[in-house]
Design a protein around this nucleic acid. Structure first.
Lengths: 334, 334
DNA sequence: TTTCCAAACCGAAACGTTTCGGTTTTATTC
DNA sequence: GAATAAAACCGAAACGTTTCGGTTTGGAAA
């Protein structure tokens, strides 16, 4: 049906190798170049990337595994990743694993069978055993946002610890002492790091927060809401709360309204991540922000570098990006 | 490097065709089955889907083209689509075309070269000329959310007209008469449909709204904000506003706060799409909702049916889904 | 005009599957 | 145990590229 390189060869009277050379940027005599281009036009020839992939053992496809496509943080990163990849001729094959590390492992298999050239993963679990086989083939794996505990990979992370430490510092500076934290799930890399940042800020100020001020959520809206209520009920003296991801920020805000808690008059608040949402709230939320586009860009670039061999496989690169803070009106000076 | 079917044949002493047959669910004598499975285990054999694709002329990949991955509405649909596709053994190759129909055409080419088996598109422009070549190869194209004006494709749409008509009806029922509409960009399918729904509701009530009550936004947050301000300034008698997509809903709300407009005391409001956001607002927004998961599921199923031949190519199916309405507290009875 | 060298060109083989048509094996029946 | 039908098996060829090693060509230098 579709024209092949052989049809072009026949039509132009040239050899297979010459056409192939032309297609891959090799030198061809001017008049032949013209003939080839005409034939390509006429027959609507398009390189069959599948055949090429079989021969070269390179598919020019990067597999992307994420916990939830339907999650703005992930989506923003992937948008950027896809853009950079495609600009370099790579296609993005995406698998959503619903924040389930079992499904993550399945996705790795799925993509491996399809012979993707590399894997970009926002890990759901903390073990990376399931990518070991892939790595053994000398294909690159780049991690985003969190690290595997047991397998070394290139990665692009964020200074989670510094992010929350900074938020706490600001609250301490505003004379808050009883600062609640809606932390993330136990064992989750970003959650643990953020919690450590919380503790570090107190420590450096020579303070020790009550244990009752920290509660674990599950990074969901309803989880955030539940935690907010629990924190308020169990800490009558609490004057400020930090929610440590976007979903829980949303949930906390909803619940505060539900409880008719005035923010920041009765309770100061620091949220996470989504600037649009922060701006839409009344009053505008003060939030920790993550450089999602930059994360995506760097991860994709790292992948490209590994793929092109610009960065040799044996050197493993880990980048850590600074977070930001956007002032709103939800921190009250005491 | 990686084991091939030939290695399995050699190891088991069986023929190539037998192994292939086994891999494709054919019958094999029990003892041979065991031998094959052992060999596969031992050599870590995995089918090379690239080679298979070359031979069968089927890649088991579906190309997905969307205006913005980084847009909750799209992301929710795609999440569902990807899930269904993968459950049927298909991979999703995603291209974000930044709401640019030129880039959309490029994406079609890109995916076509990679020999995807079908194309799922949330169109950015209204012309579908760029998929004509793809369709001519007898490969299916399924459209989501909007239709091409010039090319017939299977599609899954939403009753946009009914959605806004319903919203207006509710406001009319609450005795509002001067109802503003923040409409979408001119020429955009969903925008035009929603506008028609607005007009239809007035017509059936025997009313004609002032032209000044309709303003065109560009489906962005800042666009929505600007429109809100303009509407309020130019219509002192306006008592209610409808924003016709999520981003503009957000923008409108932000701007209302900015202008210190009390909702719903001074202005009733109906938003669009994002339930989480609606719930997080104070008071909770009344919104039109779209069945995103269902849209995704149906589109993916349609694609699968076309791909498996369950639905013959010559019959073109178009599905239209009903929207919903979630009551909040932003419509005041007059 | 001849010589010579680099540049351009060439076809066969290979990548790892599936499929076609034909052959062997097995199970069944008499 | 022979005859038969069905089931299982088999290898070669093909899918559309790239690449290898070798051959031809063009044009500059002599």
């Amino acid at each position: 049906m579709a024209a092949t390189i052989k049809d072009i060869a026949k039509k132009t009277g040239l050899g297979l190798a010459t056409i192939s050379s032309y297609l891959n940027g090799g030198n061809v005599r001017e008049k032949n170049r013209i003939k080839i281009e005409e034939a390509i036009q006429e027959l609507h020839f398009e390189v069959n990337e599948v055949a090429r992939g079989l021969k070269t053992n390179k598919t020019k496809i990067v597999g992307i595994i994420i916990p939830e496509l339907n999650n703005i943080f992930c989506a923003e990163i992937i948008t950027e990743v896809e853009d950079v990849l495609r600009n370099h001729g790579y296609a993005a094959m995406i698998c959503d694993c619903r924040t389930d590390s079992g499904r993550e492992a399945e996705a790795v298999d799925f993509l491996d069978k399809r012979r993707v050239d590399g894997l970009l993963v926002i890990p759901s679990g903390s073990s990376g055993k399931h990518v070991a086989a892939f790595l053994k083939k000398n294909k690159p794996v780049v991690l985003i946002d969190r690290d595997y505990r047991d397998v070394m990979c290139d990665c692009v992370l964020v200074d989670n610890r510094g992010a929350v430490r900074d938020a706490v510092r600001r609250l301490l500076y505003a004379k808050h002492r009883n600062i609640g934290l809606i932390a993330g799930p136990e064992g989750m890399y970003t959650a643990e790091e953020r919690l450590k940042g919380y503790e570090a800020a107190f420590k450096e100020a020579g303070l020790t927060p009550s244990e009752r001020l920290v509660i674990r959520g599950d990074y969901t809206i309803s989880g955030g809401a539940g935690c907010m209520r629990a924190l308020v009920e169990r800490n009558p003296d609490m004057t400020a709360v930090i929610a440590s991801n976007y979903e829980m920020t949303m949930g906390a805000i909803v619940e505060a309204h539900e409880m008719e808690l005035k923010i920041p008059e009765q309770l100061s608040f620091v949220g996470f991540d989504n600037l649009d949402f922060a701006r839409a709230c009344v009053p505008r939320l003060s939030i920790v922000t993550q450089p999602t586009r930059e994360i995506g860009r760097r991860a994709a670039r790292l992948m490209i570098q590994k793929l092109t061999g610009e960065l040799p496989p044996e050197i493993i690169k880990s980048e850590r990006l600074k977070t930001g803070f956007v002032e709103g009106r939800t921190i009250r000076m005491r």
